[in-house]
C-alpha cells in the first residue's frame, strides 16, 4: 500500500521568497504571511442575530463585533465580515469549525474558511503608502484606528482588511485576508507596488 503524505502548502509557498525585495537599504515595508490558521465564518440565521451574539459572548467572553471592528479574545480574533456575520481567526485548532458548531448550533451557520484565505500582515513606515496603491480605504490613523476593519477590495479582489495592535515602537500593522486562489497575484502586485520602498519578506506561524 502506498504511503500518502498530506503536506499542507500555502498558496504563497513558491511566490514568497524570504529575502529583501526592491530598493536596497532599510526596508520601508515588511510583508509577512501568517500560515496555518483556523478561520471560521459565522453567519446568523434569519432572525437569530441576538442569539448569535449571546452565544458568542458566552463562548468568547467578549461581544462579537456588530460593526466593522476586530476584537481580541483570549485565543482568537473576531473580525466583522458583513452584517450579522464575523470571522473567528485562531491558531492551533482552539477555535476550529468543529469546536464552534455546537456553540452556534441554534443561532448561526458556519463555514470553514481556513484554507480559503491567505493572511498577509503589512507593517513598516511605508505600509500606508503601499496600501494606498491597493486600497481605496482611508488608513489615516484617526480614520482607521487599531481594531478597524474593512470588507473591501484590492486589485479587484475581495479582501478583509483590519488594523491589528501596533507593533513595538508604535508602528501600525495591517492584516489582509485574501482569497487563496488570488493570493499569489495580489502578492506580486504588492511586491511590484512596494519595490520602491524596499520590502522585508517573511512568513510566520504566529498571529500578529
Amino acid at each position: 500500500m502506498a504511503e500518502f503524505s498530506w503536506e499542507a502548502r500555502s498558496p504563497l509557498e513558491r511566490a514568497l521568497v524570504s529575502e529583501p525585495y526592491g530598493v536596497q537599504g532599510e526596508a520601508g515595508v515588511a510583508l509577512t504571511e501568517i500560515r496555518n490558521f483556523d478561520l471560521v465564518q459565522v453567519m446568523a440565521r434569519r432572525g437569530k442575530a441576538s442569539e448569535m451574539a449571546t452565544a458568542a459572548k458566552g463562548h468568547f467572553g467578549v461581544a462579537a463585533p456588530e460593526t466593522p471592528k476586530a476584537v481580541r479574545t483570549a485565543d482568537a480574533t473576531l473580525i466583522w465580515s458583513g452584517p450579522d456575520q464575523f470571522f473567528v481567526l485562531s491558531k492551533g485548532g482552539r477555535q476550529s469549525v468543529k469546536s464552534l458548531v455546537p456553540i452556534f448550533a441554534a443561532s448561526a451557520s458556519l463555514s470553514d474558511q481556513s484554507h480559503a484565505r491567505v493572511l498577509i500582515s503589512i507593517s513598516g513606515d511605508k505600509a500606508r503608502a503601499l496600501l494606498a496603491k491597493l486600497s481605496s480605504i482611508d488608513l489615516y490613523p484617526a480614520a482607521f484606528p487599531v481594531g478597524a476593519v474593512a470588507a473591501t477590495s484590492m486589485d479587484h479582489t475581495s479582501v478583509t482588511l483590519w488594523r491589528g495592535n501596533d507593533a513595538p515602537g508604535g508602528r501600525a500593522v495591517f492584516n489582509v485576508l485574501v482569497f487563496a486562489t488570488f493570493a499569489e497575484s495580489l502578492w506580486q502586485t504588492m511586491l511590484d507596488s512596494g519595490a520602491e520602498y524596499g520590502i522585508e519578506i517573511g512568513h510566520s506561524e504566529e498571529l500578529a
Binding site: A2, F4, S5
Partner: peptide, 17 residues
C-alpha cells in the same frame, strides 16, 4: 481543503500509478 490540493495531485499520481 485547498492547502492539501497539491498533495492530492501528487497522491493521486501515486495511488493511480
Amino acid at each position: 481543503p485547498a492547502r492539501y490540493g497539491e498533495a492530492m495531485a501528487r497522491n493521486l499520481m501515486i495511488a493511480g500509478k
